[in-house]
Design a protein around this nucleic acid. Structure first.
Lengths: 362, 362
DNA sequence: CTGAAAGCGCTTACAG
DNA sequence: CTGAAAGCGCTTACAG
């Protein structure tokens, strides 16, 4: 019962109509006519008939026969924040001309134990495995480690994009393409220093992604190099334990941590006059709460962060530009090389980019 | 050359190991053991062997044999703004338990004539067609009409989500699930009226999507019903002609229209004191420019819009909630019904939702 | 230059 | 209850 779907035209149908063998039709249609030595006239005639009959090759049949599907899965944390769009664009740019099809998936609801809406972990993993996708490009989340291992066990190359997990145990075989963000983080913190802020703080909530570590280092080092002090009371760091990383609990924890932080900024006499925030997503949440409290930005408190996602532009946040497009491009190329055996896992690449955009938050 | 991918385990391998026929293995593995009357003991043994050997069914082979793939394409305008995430979540919720796999694609770069990055129009359309996806769920964009027709011609059900094109000529066979947004728009405009604003304006830039029409109507009607005047100079509407709808030109046109509008707000003596904006995306752009000019919101000018996307929350925009999750759910269910022949195209559904969130922009 | 044949991995009507 | 066989649509080594 396939609705009103038209009868499928196959290579065989074309062959019959052209009174010629399937073999020849297949060679022509897959562009190998010249190579095989098929008469141009024949090739032209076959192509015309195929077009006229509305032939659409069946990629399932082709994949089955060729034992390769040309599909590469791309797993994002989620589609929010416009990050996915930009990475995916880079991926498509590279993959399209090489005949690979990237497929985007959101990992929301894919974490262990999360029972929320959406496909379960195993459902998404299985569909990738069963579909015989040739590689997995992935923005890693701490809750899906087992899934990543599952891909590796099946021999599917996994390439992490953007950042790594704090705990990469068991994922040593993963390749990655990440932003070498420490220098950029130093540029941003230095900008706050140069703008004259004296009590510069740090804000992050961490979910087992590694970027917190190097950005905090950059923060500390830059202050020290600038002769400024790191005040403990200006460092707002919340490490969310593994078992509380599911969306709902996490959301609450982050919200209340933001509220605490804003209360401190508003009331404390030793509050910071500027804060370097882990990333744009968190900075936007913080800024939102600061607005709600009517605290003047940047007069009372300046903010700067990392990423340059859409939200940073829209909210006027000073931030360093994460080279998302390039990460996508490099990761896609790496996937192709791993698939073809030109590279051997694990391959690890760093992308450098220190660009910064100054906006009205600082 | 499939890298280090392990040898694939097939039904045949399991059959050999179990010293039993492929048939029986297949029945057991596809959960039909009981129905066929296979001994529980046999079934259990086969399942154990399959698990032990790490069997992963090959969906390409199954699809080829069954003549259905269980894949449903979901085309978004883009992944920005978090709209895709929420629609997709609704889609997954419905599709997953029914054994369908939704695949998300961005149409950026898919418009006619756009030569930018990403896959070309025909590449994306072809991959959907060749993959034999069973339906296309789609947030329509004016530039891809030919692609939609192409799906219809091939007998693939197309379901528009969210809104329609102004010009639906040739797309009469499309089903749709859209937000009946006029009542919600009236609620939002009424909120501005009730808040005491007297010179309420309207802002939109239109790309051939139909939502502008009904929202403008709601605007006009609500003002009239409230005894307020519609001032021509407070209506900022830009209709972007078809040939200028490619991203780059469009971006410039919108930017300069926003700047003009903000200049008018700032300088004119008959500027509006509030503006009802087409949607959150445009409202965020407008608000951003208003901030840049240092104009006080909502004191000098209030804003309200439609959607309740992430950006509205983050920027504090008063807005009506588009029932994205529900649109996704209903559209997905409709796709399944069309595929199974339970429904006949075109089916057209309206989702009602008048919820509004008041934030600091009004 | 062209055709007959095998086979990718699966499911299912059919015969026992 | 179980097995041998056909066939989904494609590609390609092989033989002419």
């Amino acid at each position: 019962v396939v609705g009103k779907r038209k009868k499928t035209i196959t290579v065989n149908d074309i062959a019959k109509k052209a009174k010629i063998s399937k073999t020849t039709v297949s060679y022509v249609l897959s562009g190998k006519a010249r190579k095989i030595g098929i008469a141009d006239k024949t090739a032209k005639r076959i192509k015309e008939i195929a077009a006229e009959m509305g032939y659409i090759p069946n990629s399932w049949a082709g994949s089955l026969r060729n034992q390769k599907t040309g599909i590469i899965s791309v797993l994002f944390d989620s589609f929010v924040m416009g990050l996915a769009e930009r990475i995916f664009c880079g991926i498509e740019t590279v993959l399209a001309p090489k005949g690979y099809t990237p497929i985007a998936l959101s990992q929301r609801g894919m974490q262990d134990g999360k029972s929320g809406a959406g496909l379960s972990v195993s459902a998404k993993t299985n569909s990738i495995l069963q579909r015989r996708d040739e590689a997995v490009l992935c923005q890693p989340i701490a809750g899906a480690k087992n899934e990543y291992k599952c891909f590796l066990n099946s021999g599917v190359p996994v390439i992490f994009m953007g950042s790594l997990l704090e705990d990469m145990t068991g994922l040593e075989e993963c390749s990655y393409v990440i932003w070498d963000c420490k220098p950029a983080a130093k540029v941003v913190v230095k900008h706050l220093v140069d703008s004259g802020y004296k009590r510069i703080g740090y804000f992050s909530t961490s979910f087992g992604i590694d970027s917190d570590v190097s950005r905090f280092e950059a923060y500390v080092e830059t202050l020290q190099e600038s002769g400024l002090e790191v005040f403990d009371e200006c460092v707002y760091r919340l490490d969310i334990p593994d078992e509380k990383r599911y969306d709902d609990i996490r959301g609450e924890l982050v919200s209340s941590f933001i509220l605490e932080t804003v209360a401190h900024i508003k009331e404390s006499s030793n509050a910071p006059d500027a804060i370097f925030v882990l990333n744009d997503a968190q900075c936007s949440g913080l800024l939102e709460a600061i607005h709600d409290e009517g605290i003047a930005v940047p007069e009372k408190i300046a903010l700067a962060s990392m990423g340059n996602l859409d939200v940073a532009r829209v909210m006027g946040i000073t931030t360093a530009c994460e080279p998302l497009n390039e990460i996508g491009e490099v990761a896609a190329q790496l996937a192709v090389d791993l698939i073809n055996g030109k590279e051997k896992s694990p391959v690890q690449k760093l992308i450098t980019s220190n660009e910064m955009v100054v906006r009205r938050s600082s």
